[in-house]
Design a protein around this nucleic acid. Structure first.
Lengths: 236, 236
DNA sequence: GTGTGAAACTTGATATATCAGATTTGAAAT
DNA sequence: ATTTCAAATCTGATATATCAAGTTTCACAC
């Protein structure tokens, strides 16, 4: 309803527009290269030629160089001064990315348990409830979406911008692989149990419990991805 | 002109690049900018102009853009497509960098305790012994060097290349600040006790103990840095 | 066959030019 | 005074050119 307050200062609080809507060439190259690297389309140690890449993408070398700088900082390629960049990704690299994500995601879960408010608690439990339903019906697309919402919600509840951003960079698989995972009923059930345990711990304000369950979840599910992508078991 | 104090705002004036210096220009710019940002010579949210920066450094915009890409991936600046980059560093960002380092460094300590060999054990204890001596004599430069060797050694013992690299990017202070810290005898003693506890846990193969003591150490010493740099206490 | 080294070639690093989206400006309209 | 809107301007994004370090080639001497 129209409040009694002074005119202006509209009270329909909109979220900021996501500026990352707009696609730049360097972003496209960055994403494409990242995806290619983590799906193993480059051999570890393989040299990358800037001019060839630019030709393949049909662009100049400028955005290529920028994308390579991003990949370098992410740790997916290594730049040897005046010699070019080489691919720096293998199963052991992926294992460490899991560990990094486990460490960071459990830290953020710890903080979320401390900082979540009543509204957030309800929302979290609601997501968990929907997860139960989707697990039973077995809809993989729903599960993928819910899984994203679940972790995003925890990130927001922790009020940690930097950590959330850092975690995003520790993903070494993309949507297509996730779908495969969620097709397995056993895996679905495990993931659900873990998600419920995490949600309960966070909602109960049990920071240590949230930390522990989140860490176990990330490591275990990460190992599942590892074994599928690299056809072998990972270990902590 | 230039502000000497740490977390103030305003512009940072850089010396022109020494052309005879060998390192690549982008690397120089990256380091200089990183150092400028984490020592507060830019205000949070401040816009960065590529051309102005290029002029200050006396170089073209190409290496500037590359350095900015690196800073962006590190999370120290944010790039708004076609609008430029803004500084993304504040005390809260620094707090989160501590948490990230605590999470990662404790994970690596955990692994080091599991993977360290006899030679590594002896070397670790040797470093700890030297630390005791340097703490007593109170030589700050020695302590800084030893501190670096200590953590480096743990990183190597963990056999984790990716994690070690990731940790390096979570430092938000540089050598000059460290010196200040090590001048305080109380701080020196605390750091020593923690280092000894970490070394003992790792040498004993106590992974959980190593993890816990490392985490406590990083958080506590990080808070000390926070309080000095931002003149206020940090909290977990 | 092995080693040397200079020329030819490759390619990353840097500089400069061009393009296009974003912001500012200012005059006209209300 | 406020709004509108298009021209002027700024500036990031991209393309192209140039430079110099690194690599390869190959004739030549041993």
């Amino acid at each position: 309803m129209a409040a009694d307050n002074l005119p202006s200062s509209g009270n329909a609080d909109f979220e900021k527009i996501d500026a990352s809507f707009q696609m730049t060439v360097r972003d496209h190259v960055h994403r494409a290269m990242r995806s290619a690297i983590i799906s193993g389309r480059f051999a570890p140690g393989q040299k990358i030629n800037e001019r060839h890449l630019a030709e393949q993408f049909g662009v100049s070398t400028t955005p290529i160089k920028e994308a390579l700088r991003q990949l370098e900082t992410e740790g997916l390629v290594e730049a040897l001064p005046r010699r070019g960049v080489i691919i720096k990704f293998s199963s052991s690299w992926a294992e460490e990315m899991i560990l990094a994500r486990a460490a960071l995601e459990s830290m953020i879960a710890h903080l979320a348990a401390k900082r979540i408010d009543e509204k957030g608690r309800l929302e979290l439990q609601s997501i968990a409830k929907h997860m139960k339903e989707a697990t039973i019906s077995g809809d993989p697309d729903s599960l993928i979406t819910l899984n994203e919402r679940f972790h995003d919600h925890i990130h927001r509840s922790s009020q940690c911008g930097y950590l959330a951003k850092l975690i995003e960079r520790q993903q070494f698989y993309d949507a297509s692989i996730r779908r495969v995972i969620h097709l397995d009923p056993t895996e679905r059930q495990k993931a659900l149990d873990e998600h419920v345990a995490i949600a309960d711990a966070i909602a109960a304000g049990d920071a240590d419990g949230a930390e522990r369950t989140m860490r176990d979840h990330v490591v275990r599910s990460g190992d599942t991805y590892l074994s599928i992508i690299f056809k072998k078991e990972g270990e902590i």
